[in-house]
Every structure is written in structure tokens, then in C-alpha cells.
Design a protein around this nucleic acid. Sequence first.
RNA 1: AGAUCCGUAGCUCAGCCUGGUUAGAGCACUACACUGAUAAUGUAGGGGUCAGCAGUUCAAAUCUGCUCGGGUCUACCA
Length: 1134
Amino acid sequence: MDKKYNEFSRLSLTDFANEILKFWNQEKIFEKSVSEKDGHQPFVFYEGPPSANGMPGIHHVISRTLKDLVCRYKTMQGFQVKRKGGWDTHGLPVELGVEKSLGISKEDIGKKISVEEYNATCRREVLKFKDKWDDLTRKMGYWVDLEHPYITFENNYIETLWWALKKLYDKGYLYKSVSIQPYSPAAGTGLSSHELNQPGTYKDVKDTSIVAIFTVRRNEKSEFLFKNVKGNVSFIAWTTTPWTLPSNLGLTVGEKIEYSLVETLNPYTHEPVNVVLATQLIPRYFKPEGENLEFNSDQAKKIIPWKNIQSFGGKQLEGISYEQLMPSEANTMEKIKESDPEADPFKVILGDFVTTEDGTGIVHTAPAFGADDFKVGKQNHLGLLVLVDKKGKFIDGVGEFSGRYVKDYRDEKNYQDVNVDISVMLKKEGKAFKIEKFEHNYPHCWRTDKPVIYYPLDAWFIKTTAVKDRMIELNKTINWKPESTGTGRFGNWLENMVDWNLSRSRFWGTPLPIWQTEDGEEKICIGSINDLKTEIRKSVEKGFMELPAEYKGQTEKFIEQLTSDLHKPFVDTIILVSPSGKPMKRVPALVDVWFDSGSMPYAQWHYPFENKEIFKQNFPADFICEGVDQTRGWFYTLHALAVLLFDSVAYKNVVSNGLVLDKNGNKMSKRVGNVIDPFKTLDEFGPDATRWYLITNASPWDSLRFDTEGIKEVQRKFFGTLYNTYQFFALYANVDGFFNQEKSIPVNERPELDRWILSALNSLEKEVTENLDNYEPTPAARAIDSFVNDQLSNWYVRLCRRRFWKPARKENGVENASDVKDKISAYQTLLECLVQVSKLMAPVAPFFADWLFRNLNAVVKVDTKQSVHLTDFPKADPKIIDKELEKRMELAQDVSSLILSLRKKVNIKVRQPLQKVLIPSLGDEFENRLKPVVHIIQSETNIKEVEVLPVNNDFIKKKAKANYKTLGKRLGAGMKWAASTIQNLSGEQIDRASDSKLLLNPEYDKKGEEAIYITSEDLEVSTEEIPGYEIAVKGSLTVALDLELTPDLKNEGFSRELVNRVQNLRKEKNLEVTDKIVLIIEDKGLTKNIISDYNDYICAEILARQIDFVPSLTNGEQIEVNNDVLTVQIKKIS
RNA sequence: AGAUCCGUAGCUCAGCCUGGUUAGAGCACUACACUGAUAAUGUAGGGGUCAGCAGUUCAAAUCUGCUCGGGUCUACCA
């Protein structure tokens, strides 16, 4: 064997990672990890496409670590896991980025810059940071196919989207309707919720608000309101947007809210009025001292008098009619009927959105200008009035207000607030109950800073509500991590689902493939490029489309060219022929980018135009994983489209990871400057430590406080320890020439310690597998962590150290066979642990795992694979797991720990041997457990003998505590009494209970109680005292140490000290571990005898051929052993 | 406003599902020890109203309800 294990001068996770990365690239390990699994069962993973026009952040590292570790794990388990990367390329963020870099605004599109040029820039810019992303992907070790990603702007991708849209259209799921959307009159454009959520859009503003008076029409329904009052009855309703009052068509009340009829005076005109409002809100408008005040009294001039006439539920008000508040030419019944022939406005309706927090509990309802208003308006056939145009000004026919802007949209110098004027007018007419400035939070257009209004706009919808029940049903079959996201956040979302507003009025996006005639009577939805070509041919034939000069006579070439990019503005130049022969133009809408990403299961394969078989095998996904913010984003659109198109789930398991916060728990934001640069982090700490930290620190779905100190800790504790363990192994294995050439020693022939660590290892394999199968990587990685640190390094290696460097005894020049076997067993065991750990940790820390695996495997050849990622994931062998053995070792650890703490307490160092430790038996099981590990305790704590005290001895004083679990169930309320009684039991009573049973309340008869017998299982017995010994206790386990130091023990301690000092000298002199020496000591008389007595032991330990005593030593070195100073010299024998 | 997650030592987190004795670990801190794994390691110590309140129970960090604080998503409403 010429090859040795690599030894390293220091741990550099980044260097190791770079080296392994190079190896992966050269040997195409990722590609092999997929191709080697050809024919295996696939495990389907979908990559949620990031947008490459922004820089990646640290939060991308966590979700990608999760994705990667699951995929690597499944690969090692034998599945074939293809991972196609993808890019989300459409949408507003891209447009904004382009506008910023070009220094233009939306208005300039089509003027300063053509749509063609604009979109070309988008296409170019959107992958601006692709290189950075790819770089991060590689550096963090995220294995995903970067060479063949799907890109949402590509024609093939769009063609699949069109296919899907057509399918929805044919099923009747794609329809056009009006919806109320945020709209910026100043910018002349609708705003998406994303735009509305830009920072700073919601501002506190003061607006003129008015409580208006709506006069009730007296009829059968309203008659009950007129009982006991004189004159008119009115509803009062509040609004912060008086400009919507001319468009009022209804009043909404809450079914469960109680309302009252109040007799009072109009505060402005002082005419008597009777008003209806929510009972709860009376104090908001009326002073308590005004209640039941005489209407004509003097006081009534200062304090408005009022009287609650009667109260009733909101339900009773339903259907009552009232007089139109501000009639004008533009809002006559005729006009209203135009919007809905069945319109029946000016009545009270019920709505569940009504609250009693603001206003009067009666909501002024103008269906055109509020989403809720629109909804109830439609349900109740209120009709629709849009008295404000898209510029934000009143249309003609609204009397004196026509032509006036409802808000100051044009920065007019002398802008008169029309809301004030409306209020003043109503006040004069006696139709105002209260007018005041009201400060509230109102959205503003992020671009123009002007207030947004809600406005009815044409929109295309997908009828998701049609399959709502099916979506809920199928959702129940999805395994959500954490479960609460699926049932809670997502489940609720599904329960309250509304139709999906698909259309966006933008430039860079997937065009909606619907063409329609000018009157909207005839429509066609295009589902493929071929269909489009066919239709264009018809159109060219018909003469609706003319060939440009350069294509004269080359219709096909022209069509080919025209359909080579399905984006605007090209698609919009296409005019098609309707069945009746009329021209049709494309509707202006683009589709929501979420449709792009939600369609990726099929669009990434250009299904159904290509890859039908591939798609079939890769749908639905076994696993997806994204941030929890995608719940109503990608997770939803994937699910909705899968149900709509295929009546299937899109994914079977989904992990939603939480947010990454900074170390103070604040959201990371560029503005605050607390963002973590993932590149810097990876460079500084290496990908393995970063990944390990992210996974072990908190469950993926908990939000994570990111602190680089934590990564340092991981580096030092976990990787440092594992690295040291490897180094230890490599060092001695090289010295001993252990290269795994020997036959594997059967596990049952190995020593206790070896069998124990192998049992623990297999238990670990079981635990890790169970957790990873469950998509719980955090406990899995933590278990590996604790195995490596606590069991392998801190116990196994520490206890076995001697086995590795102690040479086998020689008898007649031949090494003792059992010594050799013991040593090989130790090497084989440690090797097995290291190799298996490298496999177990491979999904989480792929670089280091491979580094470890390859360093070992290069020499020991336990596996034919060249990378750990091509090997099989360890499967626990139940035959090797011995829980009893693990318990035994735990006992040894506990006993040793107790003894060490006692030594500490009395200040006797471990090197000083002690004669005896006493351990009171806790029964047969305990003794059987203890016996096999006695020698471990002895060597670990340097104690000559371990004596077990029999169960019933008179020697130790015991005390007992109640076992609450067993007794509590039986005794219930008597538990307290029993606990204190048990605490006071004598040792003799405790023994009796342990042997058979003890009557706890001998006087039960007298007191008329039930007899209470307790047995050993009801007691937790512990040792209180062992006379003459120092004791230490953990639970019911007790150890007592014999502290007597006999001369023999002292001498042995002395010799051990000496060995220790000489070892230090060897190290100081930079001697090799294997160098032989001669030790020369200046003869000081006393110590000579001790040293001579232990000559053999000392020589063996320090690798000395002999110890020479000389009368005086001039060039020696002084060492202190216990309280003696010795002058010594060590000489290397060459 | 609704939904959801989180709140345990100075920090990061276990424990909670399935209630039970003195609530654990690591880091940090302090002291001592160890020194052929050594940028390691061991032992000990200080440090907790388990966010608060109420309920269920013999018994609550654990189960229930409410409140408070933080995060996220959705909505933005007269």
C-alpha cells in the first residue's frame, strides 16, 4: 500500500469546498447522479422560478438548501431526480427595472421609446443577474440544471400558456367582466396589489368626511319606523369620499347589528329629524346629557337633544327604499337601467362587511367605487353608476360639479376641493348630519403620489370558484410542511376564494390570446402557434392584413416572421377574421405573471406540443419548496391550474420555509442596510457551515434570525470536531498502516465500545432516515451533530485513544494476536462511523461530506463510487442496534461523569488512581447493565475497583419520592398527602415497599378511607448518605468514592505524572509519535525507587528503551512532578 | 381587519403532540483542570415570574380561552 490518508495542516471549509466543486465540475458528478439513475423510479421536483433581474439574497440560500438536500437525499435513496432550473421573466419588477435604467416612465412608452424597443430591453435586462445567480447556485452547492432551464418569455413557453388558456376558454372558465381595481387617475392606469404594497403608498391624509341624510320612503316595509314619531325618518351614512355620493345606489346594513331610531334636531338647520343608526354608535353623535332633553328648552340650543324611540335588528331594515340623495341628469333611473335592466336601486341591503367601528353602521354604497360595494350591488341589482371618468373628473350631467376633478390630480393652483363643495351643498339642503375633517390611511399611487381611487375596469377572469370544492378536496391530500400552512393559511384562502383576475395592462408579459370584433360579439381564443398561423392566412386572404413591402408574395415567410415572437407589439398587429367575416383585434390584456409560473409543470416541457411522455412522468411533483410568502402566489396558482386543467394536485409534498430575519429579528431590507450578502457569507464560512447552520438552527418554517456568529459556532463545533476526528484517524492509521486490508471483524466479536458506537450509528441512521422521509431536516441534522460530538468524538474516540496508539504487546517478537485484533476492530469501527457519517451528512453539507468520503475512500476503497453523492444512503441494520447496550453505555457515561465531578470536588486529579468506588444497586436489571461497562468506568475515571452494594444493605441511608405518574392516577386528590408521607418514609419502610408492598395509611380503617398500598414502582428511591464517603447523585443513581490514598496509589500517581511530563517534553522537542527515546534522570534518591517500580509501565508509555539514572545532569531540564522537581533529559534513539 | 407562525437563561434553540419529581442543551461569562485529537477537551458555577391573565386538573412550560408583543400573508373597507 503506497497510498496514505491525507493529513491537513488546518481546517479550511472554503478551500475544501472549492476543491470539491472543481472535482464535481471535472467529473460531472451532478450529471452522473442523474444519469446513473436512468430507469429508476423518478422523484419529481419543481423549481420555482426566481426572477433574475434582482440580486439573490441570503433567504434564497435557505430555500435552495432545503430543495437541494431533499433532492440529494432522494437521489442517494435510489430515485432519479431531475431538476430543471427556470427563470421568471415577465412582469412589473422587470418593467420597473428597465424604466429605471432607461430613465423613462410608463407614459413615455410608445412616445419616447417604441413598445418594440421597450420589450427588447426587457428581454435583455431580465437576465441581467443570471450570471450572479448561477454563481451562487454553484457556490452554495445547489444542484439544478442550469444548462437547460425553462424561460417564461420564450415562444415555446408562451405557446403552452396559450394552450392552457384556450383549454380554460373552451371549458367556459375564462371570462370577461368588470372588476373594481385600484386606479390612478393621475397616471391613467390601474394598479396591481403589488404596486399598492410598495413602501410609502399608504399615507395618513385628512379628508372631508360627511354623514349624509337619506330620507326613507314611507310604505308598508318602512311603516314601523314611523310609529311614535312625527315627520320624516332618515338613514344617516358616513363617507370619506363625498364625490361618490352622486353615484350612490344603496345603503348597506349589518344583519346582526342592532339599529335605533333616534328623534333629534339637525345640527345645522335645527329642524326636527328622526334618524336611524347603529345603537352602538349613538354616543359618537349624541352627548349623554342631551338624552331626553326638552326640544324647546334653552339648553337645547347648546346641547342637541335626542331620544331613542326604538331599536331593531338590521334584518328589519332590508328592502326599505329611500329618496335619491343627489339626483341629476346623469343618474336618472333610465341611466341606471342602462347598466342593469333589472336595476332596483335606492334601497337598504345586507352586507357582512359592515362594522360599527366607524361611521354610523350604515354604509353608503356606490358600486362603482368599492370592491365590497360592487359585490353587494351586483347581488342586489343596485345597478352601476360611473359618474367620474378615467381622468378623475365628473362627467357631464352632474350639475354644477360636472368637469371638476374629484381630487387635485393636476396640481391646479386654485384647486377647490369638490368634496367640500358637495358637503356644503348638502348642508344647505338639510341633507348633512355631520361634516368634519377625518384623518385616515389611504393608498396613493407610488408614481404620482396622488390618491388612488377604486374604479371599475374591464378584466379577464379565470373561474376558479367553479372548482373551489375540488380544490379544497384535493388540498387535503397534499402533505404540507408545516401542516398549519396547508390547513390554515392556504385552506382559508381556498375557502374564501374569488375568481382569479388574470388581466394586467402592461407591456412585457404573455399576451392574452383572445381576438374579438369591435362590438365584442364574436371572439376567438388561439391555442397554438399553428392555429394562429391558420387564422392569419385567412386574414391575409381576406385582405385584413397587408404584407409589408419586403414580404410581397411571401405570405408564409411573413407569417413565420410575425409569429416568431408572441409578445407585444407584434401580436397586436395581427388582425383576424371572425366567423361572420368581420375584423377582430386582440384584447389589450396581458396575463398575470403568476399564470406563467403556475403553468410551469407543462410549460417547461412545451407540453402538449412536445415531450408528452416526459410530462406524464413528471406530473404531479413529489416535492416543491418555497418561502411561505408563495402560499397565495405560486403554491396557489400551481394548485388552481392543476385542478382546472387536469383535475389533479400539482404537488404531493410542499415545504414552505419561513423568513430570514437579521440577528435582531428585523426583516432584512436594502433600505435599512441589514441585508446579508450571500456571496460574502459563502466565501467567509464556506457553503457547508452556512447550510448546516441554516438547517440546524431552526425548523425551516420558523423565521430564522440570521447571525454569522452561529455559523462560526457550527464551523468550530461540528465541522471542527469531525475534522479532528478524521485527522486523528488518519494520523494513527498512517502510523499503523491500517488501510482496511484486513478482513472485517464480525460485529459480535468486537469489544463493547465498538458494538456500542455501531449500535448508536445505526440508531442514528434510522433517526435521520425517518426525519428526512418526513421532510424534517432539522432534527435529522441535529441528530448527526450530536452523534458526532457527544458520542463519536467525546466518548468513543476519547475512550479508545489508547487502543489506537498502544503498540501490541510482543511475545517472542510476535505481536499479541488479541491486541492486534482489538486495534483493527477499533480502526474498522471508527472508519465505518466516519464513512457512514459522510453519507448521512451529504444532503446537508455536500462538499465536506464528499471531502471526508473521498479522503477515506481513496485509501480504504469501501465504495466503488467516486463521490459520496453517487453512493446509497445508509440503511440502518436492526441487527446491530442494541438499545440495551446503548442504555448500558449511558449508564457508564453517567457514572463516569459523577465520579469525575467528585474528583473535582475533592481536588484529586484523574491521573491519580483511586482504589474503589461504591455504587448502590438499583436491582438486577441495573446490575446486569453495570457489569459489562465496569472496565470502561475504571479506565475513564482511573479507579481500581467498582463495588456494587446490594439492594438491601444497612449501610446507606435512603430517601424516597413519590412517583407522581403512577400514584397520581390512582390517588387523585390524595396525591399531595401521599407525596409528603412518602418523603418521610424511613429506610426500613422503603425497603419494605421495594420488596413487597407497604401500607401507606395504616389508620385507614379508623378514618374510613381506602387502604393505600404502594410498591417499588410507586417510589423513586435515592441515596441520601453513605457514611464515610463522598457521594454524588443523579436521579436514583449514586456513586460513592473511596478517597484514601495509599502509598501504592500515590506512587502509581507519581509515575503517571512523570509519564505526562515526559510526553510534554517529547512534544516540545517535536519528536514524532513513533520516535524511541532514552530517558536520563538525575538521581535524587527518593523517587528512584518509585520510578524503578514502574519502570516497565513508564517505558512503554513514553516509548523509552530504558531509564538511566545519573548522579548529576548538567544540560537536563527541570520538570515538576507532584511536589518534586526532577532534572531529566530525553535522547532520541536513531 | 382577518388568517397564520413565534414568544422558555444574555444569545440560538430542545421539551409541548401524549400534563407528573429539581425545565434542558449549545454559545457567551466565571473558576479550576487537562495537554500525543490541542484554533480542541473535561468539571463546576452564576443565570429562568417557561410573554401575561384566567380556566380545566391532585398536578400546567405542556391542554383550553383571552390579552399583549413580534414576524408573515391577505385585505384596505363606508
